Simulated assay, not measured.
Amino acid sequence: MWKKTAIAAIAVLLLTACSSDNETTETNDNTAKNNTEQNDAANGQKEEAEQSSFQYPLTGIDAEKESMQRAVAVVVNNHPKARPQSGLHKADVIHEVLAEGDITRLVAIFQSEEPEKVGPVRSARDYFIQLAQGYDSFFVAHGYSPDAKELLTNGSIDNINGMEYDGSLFKRADFRVAPHNSYISFENIEKGADQVGAEMDTPPASFDFVKSEEVSGEDAASVKVSYFDNPSFSPVYEYDQETGKYSRISDGEPMADYETGDLVQLDNVFIVEAPHRIIDDYGRRIIDLESGGNAYLLQRGKLVKVQWENKDGRIVPAGDAAFAPGKTWINIIPDNPGLDGFVTVQ
């Protein structure tokens, strides 16, 4: 009898031991699984954080990876016969500045996006080159003033010019007449850079961007900039509450891409006073882009009066003011009559 009892007791112990071993194995397996899931989640969060840590330097918009593209500056025609233009909706920064008379031209800086083509391309001025140098840009123009030609010939900036590449890199459109019909594709810009031995894999330094979405200032739903009361060069910036951006109206027409119809939409409109002086009978100018001065900064439907400064060759808000992430348009106007004479807030 005692033998049967002993055998039964041993069997119970063995079953208990096996059950304990199974529970321990299951517990260890579950712990390992939980640890693996936690590690995977942590790694996923880390990867997501690393991905979102990259931003385009001139817009502050998140990028999937570090952007290594060099900035490209293109002088774009703004004459009424050149509108609507091509490619401007993809520019990160656009400078609007007087050439001769009361006609403005545009110096468009591309880095985060590349349109298929840009144009019409127009001739350079020395202060256009100065604006492009602030972004270490590869510079594209078709023609030049005497002072601009000297700068380009002396190698002050990597460039290609339609005076040398008309009909090859630069193409003439048949739906417009010269000098309002010169266009260049981004593919040909890259070919041109290769031909002149220009490196294109060094991105520009980043802007400093505002950290908060809160914007103070007076309401500015519609702002007009009048270059000497010429209606063809008196753009209006209209704020859209839904998009949180400004659209630009040129001579009564929304500024849109010729090919796609996409609107030019802006997160910053920066209107700055700068001393202008006419230097010859052709009406060519010297523009002081160094000294700083009064400015209006439009963001998210608000206008604030600030100062501007030249920081490392760029026209930017001074002091605590900064650009918001997104695309920027910079209007450079003569300081006489300045903001009070050229700008109307509606």
Results as ranks from 00 to 15, higher is better:
Q38L: 12
N39H: 12
D40K: 14
D40A: 15
A41L: 13
A41M: 08
A42K: 15
N43T: 11
N43C: 02
G44F: 10
Q45K: 12
Q45Y: 14
E48H: 06
E48P: 00
E48N: 12
E48I: 12
E48A: 14
A49K: 13
A49E: 13
E50N: 13
Q51L: 15
Q51R: 14
S52W: 12
S53T: 01
Q55P: 00
Y56W: 13
P57K: 01
P57N: 03
P57M: 04
P57F: 09
T59A: 03
G60W: 11
I61R: 09
D62H: 14
E64S: 15
K65Q: 12
K65C: 00
M68W: 12
Q69N: 14
V72F: 11
V76D: 07
V76F: 09
N77Q: 11
P80T: 11
A82Q: 11
R83M: 02
R83H: 03
P84D: 12
P84K: 09
Q85L: 03
L88K: 01
H89W: 11
K90D: 14
K90F: 03
A91F: 04
A91P: 08
I94G: 00
I94E: 06
I94H: 00
H95P: 03
V97F: 08
V97T: 12
L98H: 07
E100S: 08
G101P: 03
D102M: 08
I103A: 04
T104S: 08
T104C: 01
R105F: 02
R105Q: 06
L106S: 01
Q111F: 10
E113M: 14
E114L: 12
E114H: 12
E114V: 01
E114Q: 15
P115D: 10
K117T: 08
K117F: 11
G119Y: 05
P120N: 10
V121N: 08
R122Y: 00
R122E: 00
S123D: 07
A124I: 13
R125I: 12
R125K: 13
Y127I: 01
F128L: 07
Q130D: 14
Q130M: 06
Q130T: 11
L131Q: 12
A132T: 06
G134A: 06
D136G: 11
D136W: 02
S137T: 01
V140L: 05
A141D: 07
G143F: 00
G143W: 00
S145H: 08
D147R: 15
A148H: 05
A148V: 08
K149V: 02
T153S: 09
N154L: 10
S156H: 14
I157P: 04
